[in-house]
Design a protein around this nucleic acid. Sequence first.
DNA 1: GAAACGTGGGC
DNA 2: TGCCCAAGTTT
Length: 342
Amino acid sequence: MSFISKQLILWHKLYGRHKLPWQQTNNPYAIWISEIMLQQTQVSTVIDYYKKFMQRFPSIESLANAEIDDVNELWSGLGYYSRARNIHTTAKIILQEYNGIFPQKFEKILEFPGIGRTTAGAICSFAYGKNYPILDGNVKRVFTRFYGIKEWSGKSKVEKELWEIADMNLPTLDIEIYNQALMDLGASVCSRGIPQCSKCPLSESCKSFLNDWTKIIPAPKPKRLIPVKEGNIIIIQNDDSILLVKRNLKQIWGGLWSLPEIESHDDLNVWLFNLLGITKYKLIDSGRCHANFSHYKYVMHYKHILFNKLNLKPIENYIWINRSNVGKIGLPAPIKKLLSTL
DNA sequence: GAAACGTGGGC
DNA sequence: TGCCCAAGTTT
C-alpha cells in the first residue's frame, strides 16, 4: 500500500463522508445516476435532485420506459442536459442488450454515452469493489498539491501524468473507501481556497505543504474571453397558457422546452401570423433576461404578448402549458425564473 | 486539442 | 457585481 492510500483509508474512518444518499447502497444503478449528476456539479446541489430522481425512477427499467420529457423535467435546473438524454439512452440499451442488468466490466461501462474514465471507475469501485482509480476535480487537486505539479491539471500531458499517479497509488484493499477518501479530502481539508494542512493526513510528505505552494497549486485554468450573445424571445400568452417550443439537441438547453426565439422583434407580427394566424394582440411587457454560461453570456430580450383565441391547432414541436404549471416541466433555469415572475 | 455544454455557491 | 470553479464527457 502506498503512503497516500494507507493514510487516506485510516483518515476516512474518522473524517470522511459516510451518509450521502448514494453511499447507502451498492446498487450500480443508484451509483451510476449519482455519478452522472455529480459531474461538474457540487454535492450540495445534487442531493435533492438525486432523491427525487430515485423516487420517480427507482430502477433501470422504470427509467428506460420513461418519456424523455419526464426525465428532462427531473433534470431541469441541474444543467448539462445531455446527461439526462444519455442516461435515458443508456437505460434503454441496458434493458435491451443486457437484459436489464447493469454490466460489471469496466470496458463495457465505459462504452455508454456520458460515461468517461472517472465515472466508469467510480461505478466499478463503489458498486463492485473493483480496483479502478478516479480523477475528478478533488483528486486532481490533492495529487497536484502532493506532488507539486505546477501546471494546469487540464493539460493533456498533466492529465496523463495524473492518471499514472492515480494508478500507482491504488490500494490493494478497500478501494471504495480509498476513492471516497480521496474525494472527501479534496472537498474538505485540501480545498481550493485556503487548505487546512494542519488537519491533513498527507501533509508530512506533501510537496506543496513543505514548500508553501498551496496558494499557487492547483494552477488556474487559462482564461478565455467570454463573448456576449443576444437573442429575442417571446412570451406568448393565450388566456392562461404560454407557448413553449422544443429546443434542438446539441445546442444549449438541448431537448428542453423553452420560449420561442426569433431573429428580430421586428419580425414578430409576421412570425405570429405564420405560426398562429394571429393579427391582434396586446403587448403587456418587455425586458431582459440573462443567462451566464461558462463559455458565454446570453442576454435575452423578451416581449410578453397576450391574446385570446379558442381552438388553436396543435403545432409540431410546440406546446401550450398553463401558467401555473411552469414549475412542472423541463425548462432552462433562467426561463423558469422569468416565467415564474409573471 | 480546444470548445461546447448549465447552474449555483463562495468570496 | 464579477470571477472561479465544481464527483467530466463529447466532438
